[in-house]
Design a protein around this nucleic acid. Structure first.
Lengths: 346, 346
DNA sequence: CCGATTTAATAAAACGGTGTAGTATCATCC
DNA sequence: GGATGATACTACACCGTTTTATTAAATCGG
């Protein structure tokens, strides 16, 4: 491996000078352009690659961040990762990605691993599962720049970026209302999930302003957060068993909607002819499902790059040991209309 | 930050001794159990975490590997990542994950980034897209332990683990044959994709041994490797337009199968009643598709952990600068029978 | 021409570990 | 009783950078 000394020797200069030139230190402004050019050329010629460990050891900057995702197989996570990747690809930071697999023990463990590796910041992706508050406090206590993505954490001390769920369901309901639906069923998310509440708030808000009547008998709730497909199927069968007519169904998320559609179809109903169905999340499968699902798309990449920006900014401040107050952002989602919704009886 | 010196002072020992104890150096065997215990206790008490950069700098081991995936949003990749994660979570290695986004330029770039970060080994995930051979030679020239996952590379110098595609399609076809299908249509994968050939080889092999007749008019080929859903839809429409009867369809992959099903349904046919459809890959969506798709499941986690083991082994050899010859493994896939296949007219 | 400033560069000390060579003590053995 | 060897440590150099302090020459204003 070629070191900075090799470059220095080749240039007839000291390692100090080479270092200053290559890392654009402030003092390098006194070094003439000609010398700089020579140094850079020689470094390139020798194929010099600075040893990141020596750099990190001396400068105390690891140029590394940690990204924790609850479940890497979740398409929701994948899209966000794409966004994070793109944001960091232009910076000098390289992320360590760890997969929590929805397991609080692993969260603890990998938080320590990442801190042990001296990451300069953390992006923590929260899916709809509720955070254990003690885990967050573990984060707060170490004063490391971090951003929560996808969910508002309970605490005020951390930065976060999340989807505006309320606006999402509001848009969904408005879409159905405009199509002419008045008898609408709802499958709410599990109680323990915060998103469910925000989504329901959006429903109520739209209902209040438009004088749409919500029949409480047509509102059912999922129990298990891990099997929304099965849940959607079961709850829809129960709804059908009630015998109350409804022409549209708002599902907690896309998997629930898929389950619901399956139940409707196996009951001999056609979607959207007999019943419109609307999902939430717009996972990739929504586009090629049968029928293609109308859903609320969260702007994951936007969410992610916003989070990455915030983190980078926080790290920068942290380096100059300035304190920044936490940043909080809500991103409005967008309704994607496909084939699973239509005017009643259409 | 507490350093090894702090621990040493607290113990009344030299940093050398502490280091030997904590990193279980061979010389530590001369140190009495009582001292070791004390060192460990003090280290724990002070919350000592060795600085990984100092360690890496001195010992020349980064305890880091690089993982390159062609497209992180691809569920195929996600499952493999899960397998890799699990294999490495017990070792002291932490992977850097980079997303190539199917872009050869990014491959080049990130290969350099990873090598710059001094990863000790590389796992390169290949999807169905063909590798550019020059990229692989870039790998061979640097002598860094690496494993290709998911595809046989052209070269003999690298280790790889891949799915036995031939066996997969053989199983699929046998399944259809046993159900009684004799008029079977095929949508082959794009010519530029190596998998397509292996898959076709499996088809031919089974046809030869079972005396099944393949009607060349019922064999169509995808052109664009990026839009298999649309491709499946179009090709199936063309097949239907021929007017030749067929009772089953073997698709190149699950997305193609989804497209095909859509075309069949919009032509007024029922799946599987009028036509069985079989996919390949068993992506997650296959299970909850409508109808649930019979598909060939590749054992991703197995593939991944096998690859990880091989890499770890190669790294170990590399450390003791022993040379190991490349390892090559084929993993048999498994047919998952769901609802999209049945006996003709059933 | 003198002191101050700018320019161009360097020597040496970190950063926090690990590896090698060495020391001191004590038991063992012929 | 001196050589041998095991035991229980330590001193010091080193890994490859960056940083701080310092030097030396050139330039400049008065």
């Amino acid at each position: 491996m070629v070191t900075i000394r090799d470059v220095a020797r080749q240039c007839g200069l000291s390692p100090t000078t080479v270092s200053m030139v290559l890392s654009r230190a402030p003092l390098a402004s006194y070094i003439p352009e000609s010398t700089k050019k020579r140094v850079i050329q020689v470094a390139e010629g020798l194929g010099y690659q600075p040893n990141p460990f020596a750099q990190a050891l001396r400068s105390r900057h690891s140029h590394t961040i940690g990204v924790m995702v609850p479940d890497i197989a979740d398409p929701y996570c994948a899209q966000i990762l794409r966004g994070i990747e793109n944001s960091f690809s232009r910076s000098s930071y390289l992320p360590f990605l760890v997969d929590i697999q929805n397991n609080p023990l692993r969260f603890r463990k990998y938080l320590n691993v990442l801190l042990g590796r001296r990451v300069e910041g953390l992006i923590i992706l929260a899916n709809s599962l509720s955070f254990e508050t003690e885990l967050l406090s573990a984060l707060e206590s170490r004063k490391i720049p971090s951003v929560i993505l996808g969910r508002e954490p309970g605490t005020d001390a951390l930065s976060w970026v999340a989807t505006d769920n309320e606006s999402g369901t509001q848009q969904a309901l408005e879409h159905l209302y405009r199509l002419g639906h008045r008898k609408i069923a709802f499958i709410r998310g599990p109680k323990m999930i915060v998103d469910s509440h925000d989504q329901w708030a959006g429903i109520c808000c739209f209902a209040a302003t438009s004088a749409l009547e919500l029949d409480p008998r047509l509102v059912v709730t999922l129990s298990d957060p891990f099997s929304s497909y099965e849940g959607g199927y079961e709850r829809t069968k129960e709804l059908l068993a009630l015998g109350l007519p409804f022409t549209a169904l708002v599902a907690f998320d896309d998997m629930t909607a898929f389950g619901a559609i399956r139940a409707l179809i196996s009951a001999g109903l056609r979607v959207p002819h007999d019943c419109s169905v609307i999902g939430f999340d717009d996972i990739p499968a929504a586009a090629f499902y049968n029928p293609a699902l109308t859903s609320v798309r969260e702007h994951m990449e936007g969410l992610a790059s916003m989070g990455a920006e915030i983190l980078l900014e926080t790290i920068r401040a942290h380096r100059n040991n300035a304190t920044v107050s936490p940043v909080r952002r809500k991103v409005k989602p967008e309704l994607i209309v496909r084939e699973s919704t239509a005017s009643p009886g259409h």
